[in-house]
Design a protein around this nucleic acid. Structure first.
Length: 890
DNA sequence: ACCGCCGGGTGCC
DNA sequence: ACCGCCGGGTGCC
């Protein structure tokens, strides 16, 4: 009797609506009696649990098992023929701590796994020995129990443990045929070139011209280019039209998802928004501003106050904008001042209250824009530039210690701009941003939120907004995995839960299933608009782009340079060869890197070679050890070798160095140590590591030692090659501006001497520049003044993606980069919208040197990344090894 | 649940 | 009557 009461209670909790199955038990059944649909009243527990889902990468199928779902009659969740279900452990279940709950895709509970089987599975699941997935092939009309096909997936090394564990309890895993994986078994399991091409083209041809063009609202002062009108039209349509999300179709009374076989009575929640993935320079910011002003509620423009009469007031507003923009620019500049930032808001006019609809849906007014700090000033500038001067648009910069945290205030604005960092700092701390239901949330440079573990990602996913947009020129950085974050933000159901993403998309794709890839393509296509600067519409280029010519100029070393180089090379080859035979390359990774850098420096200029020894060998005291590690870290960072953190596989942020001399992001390695506790080992070389042994780079030290004595200056073959080019170019056309790019900032310093000698006026741009200086330098370089600088010495990795250097039309790469994409990005800084001349790129490569090998590897590496995209770059370490061997011709 | 299981009623054919 | 058989009550974890 008591049990019954409890059950009834749960039962009511789980079913806010009476579903069909309950009809016979309830005196007054609801109108619908369809038995194969789901109500959308979601039980809250499911998605939260599912989003903790780990990666499916590298999982192996252990086998299948026919199981039974029981207790169907107690729950409202229903499943269709072929539908995938989720299995969730319920260790707190009062009747059986081995309980395994079965839920459909929307998280509605269907039933439980039969007790005996659950007992066997619990051990496997709790110890993460395998991930168990279920698909229902039959019995969906059953009232009490139904058969369920289970598949066990996991790491190869756990396969036997799992099989034995299951067998011990009388459940034999079936390793035969490939049925029941969720997706229908599809031909051509071939991860070769087909896949590679398909992924390459994933974001290609996503132009949607059927939408036609849309005129921007009057308040937009800048006339839109045709492709921008197209984008505006597309964005408005995505916000307003109620098209079914990808893979959903109407089947009679129901909506049906053909991938997961899930069906629902109500129209599935559609995604109002998407990914605007246009190449940079095509005007994503302008288009977004136009969207904000043009598409308020029901396709009407945002009601904005116009002030025609009071010119004075208007000017003061304008001035406020300029002031704000200027202050931001200089505040963003130096790291140390950031803390003292204070807030200000501008154009703070009274709230336009012409929209007073009480309906929840219509009360939202504000668009929240999130962006990296570096592009805030760009947004402010663009609002100023593109919004008609007589229009009062309330834009609030939510930044700085004094920011106004009032929800009422924030939600009365038209636009609130803030940074990802501010958002994640606020997150979990009574964040007002998370308490507002925004009209629209826009993630600018959306690819920066990518690591789902990161606090920032969680903060972003937790935002409430009716419409959601991601702006990004490069939506995928490395792999399919990157896409999950984007889909999760867009709330593209059911893929916002990791389990369904992994099962339906990520695993099939990484395992080379063509259908999986097709699905991914469909998915992306539905929500993305992407044009590149080379795109054409009706045979006409989107925007006229001047041509780009890339050539390699081989440089011969002088005899003495060659002798020095060979000496260093042989020495390095011996050392690395020894590491290779000993199998200690990774343990000595910093040394290997140092050797390679030295060789590359030899190719550029002999004076680049740092005199500091990198020998860690005999560090007497801890202080000494620390000093040497800092030295090493400095060396690794200053050389601009594009170090990536082996944990997050991204460029290192907040770099720290371990005692075994490997560089990671502090948060990444801290997490590794946190999870492994005392047994923590360096992910690269497996040496023991401890938190208190991590050495940080002292912030103040970022600037480098200057004063290479000009008296002692000497030239090098590469310097000669460059100067030859520059002088010739000046004769031909003295108005042409050039970028001279190197990874070695010291090389840039060396180059200053001959430039001065030959009377070139130049500027220098590298990572050590404060933000304020940056804008100054760029303005100076971009300015068409006759006596302005004609050359910019540019360090390869300096500056963000948005850097605009269109004044230059010639680019000289003094040394090759590990990562060809970095070079491409650099070229794109001048070969972009606004470039009027043809662009010429020259790459200097020393003949018969490590540089030539680097170029070869660049190509191979690109192939490799594309082939293995998605897998967690499984052989990253070994491929690094191969790289090193190839570089040294071992 | 058109089952299995439990436990009470029952007991030649 | 320490069994078998019958038929009603009952039923996830």
């Amino acid at each position: 009797q008591r049990r019954k009461i409890v059950r009834g209670f749960i039962y009511r909790l789980n079913r806010p609506q009476y579903s069909a199955r309950a009809a016979h038990e309830i005196p007054q059944p609801s109108a619908s009696t369809s038995n194969c649909s789901h109500d959308f009243s979601l039980s809250p527990f499911s998605l939260a649990a599912a989003s903790e889902e780990p990666d499916a990468d590298g999982s192996v199928l252990f086998g299948h098992l026919q199981g039974t779902v029981v207790g169907l009659r107690y729950y409202s969740g229903v499943v269709n023929q072929g539908e995938m279900v989720g299995l969730v452990r319920q260790p707190q279940n009062q009747y059986d701590r081995n309980a395994v709950m079965v839920a459909n895709i929307y998280g509605n509970q269907v039933g439980h796994i039969k007790r005996e089987l659950a007992a066997a599975m619990a051990h496997v699941m709790d110890n993460n020995l395998a991930k168990v997935e279920g698909v229902v092939h039959s019995g969906t009309k059953n009232s009490f129990t139904m058969p369920l096909m289970l598949s066990f997936w996991g790491k190869e090394e756990n396969q036997n443990t799992v099989k034995e564990n299951m067998a011990r309890r009388g459940f034999k895993l079936n390793t035969g045929g490939g049925k029941a994986t969720g997706t229908k078994p599809n031909a051509l399991q071939h991860p070769g070139s087909l896949l590679k091409n398909a992924f390459d083209n994933l974001f290609d041809g996503l132009m949607e011209s059927e939408d036609g063009e849309k005129q921007a609202a009057e308040a937009v002062g800048t006339p839109l280019l045709p492709h921008q009108k197209q984008a505006l039209s597309w964005m408005c349509a995505r916000e307003n039209k109620s098209a079914l999300p990808p893979f959903w179709e109407r089947r009679g009374e129901l909506y049906y998802n053909r991938l997961t076989c899930f069906s629902a009575k109500e129209i599935p929640e559609r995604v109002r928004g998407g990914i605007l993935a246009d190449d940079m320079g095509l005007g994503k910011t302008l288009t977004t501003i136009a969207l904000i002003l043009t598409n308020f509620h029901k396709g009407k423009p945002l009601p904005v106050e116009k002030c025609v009469r009071v010119a004075n007031e208007f000017f003061s507003d304008r001035r406020a904008v300029c002031l704000a923009s200027a202050i931001i620019k200089c505040l963003c500049t130096c790291v140390c001042v950031r803390r003292c930032l204070y807030t200000f808001f501008f154009v703070c006019s009274g709230v336009d209250s012409s929209i007073t609809e009480s309906a929840d849906d219509l009360s939202a007014r504000t668009t929240l824009i999130l962006c990296p700090l570096s592009v805030i000033s760009n947004w402010l500038d663009q609002f100023e530039q593109h919004v008609r001067a007589n229009v009062k648009l309330n834009v609030y910069l939510y930044y700085g210690a004094e920011r106004n945290r009032s929800k009422a205030f924030l939600s009365s604005q038209d636009v609130v701009i803030t940074t990802y960092n501010v958002l994640s700092a606020d997150f979990g701390n009574k964040s007002p941003l998370h308490g507002i239901n925004w009209l629209r949330v826009v993630l600018d440079e959306g690819h920066v939120v990518r690591n789902p573990q990161a606090q920032m990602s969680k903060a972003v996913l937790d935002l409430k907004g009716q419409r959601r947009w991601i702006l990004s020129g490069t939506p995928i950085q490395n792999s399919v995995k990157d896409l999950w974050m984007l889909l999760a933000f867009l709330r593209l159901k059911p893929f916002d839960a990791r389990e369904w993403w992994n099962r339906v998309i990520q695993r099939p794709v990484t395992q080379g299933d063509r259908a999986g890839l097709q699905n991914l393509q469909t998915l992306v296509k539905c929500i993305t608009l992407r044009r590149t600067k080379g795109s054409e519409v009706n045979g006409r280029p989107l925007v006229a782009m001047p041509e780009k010519t890339v050539c390699v100029e081989q440089v011969e070393l002088s005899q003495s340079e060659r002798e020095e180089y060979e000496l260093a090379r042989n020495e390095g080859r011996n050392t690395i060869g020894r590491y290779v035979t000993e199998g200690t390359v990774l343990r000595n990774y910093a040394d290997v890197l140092a050797i390679l850098i030295r060789l590359r420096q030899h190719c550029c200029h002999p004076d680049l070679l740092s005199k500091t020894s990198l020998d860690l060998g005999a560090a007497a005291t801890p202080a000494e050890m620390r000093e040497r590690l800092i030295e090493k870290l400095r060396f690794v960072l200053a050389s601009g070798s594009d170090e990536e953190c082996s944990v997050c596989l991204d460029s290192v942020r907040l770099p720290v160095i371990t005692h075994c001399a490997h560089v990671y992001c502090r948060p990444c390695i801290a997490q590794v140590i946190g999870t492994e506790q005392e047994t923590a080992r360096c992910p690269l070389c497996r040496s023991e590591i401890k938190t208190n042994e991590l050495v940080e780079f002292p912030q103040e030290e970022m600037e480098e030692e200057k004063n290479t004595n000009p008296d002692k200056w000497r030239t090098s073959s590469k310097v000669q090659a460059l100067m030859g080019n520059l002088l010739r170019l000046r004769c031909e056309d003295s108005s042409i501006k050039c970028l001279v790019v190197s990874q070695f900032t010291r090389f840039l310093t060396i180059l200053e001497t001959p430039l001065r000698e030959h009377g070139f006026s130049f500027v220098r741009f590298d990572g050590t520049l404060s933000q304020k200086k940056r804008t100054q330098v760029i303005q100076e370089f971009q300015s068409p003044a006759a006596d302005g600088p004609v050359i910019m010495l540019l360090s390869l990795k300096a500056g963000g993606v948005g850097l605009n250097l269109t004044a230059a039309s010639h680019v000289y790469f003094m040394d090759p980069a590990w990562n060809p994409a970095t070079e491409e990005q650099c070229i794109d800084r001048c070969h972009r919208l606004g470039q009027t001349r043809n662009v010429f790129v020259t790459k200097f490569i020393v003949k018969g040197s490590v540089e030539e090998n680097m170029v070869k590897i660049q190509k191979q590496k690109q192939d490799l990344v594309e082939k293995a995209f998605g897998c967690r770059n499984p052989d990253r370490k070994t491929s690094r090894m191969d790289e090193i061997k190839a570089l040294m011709e071992l």
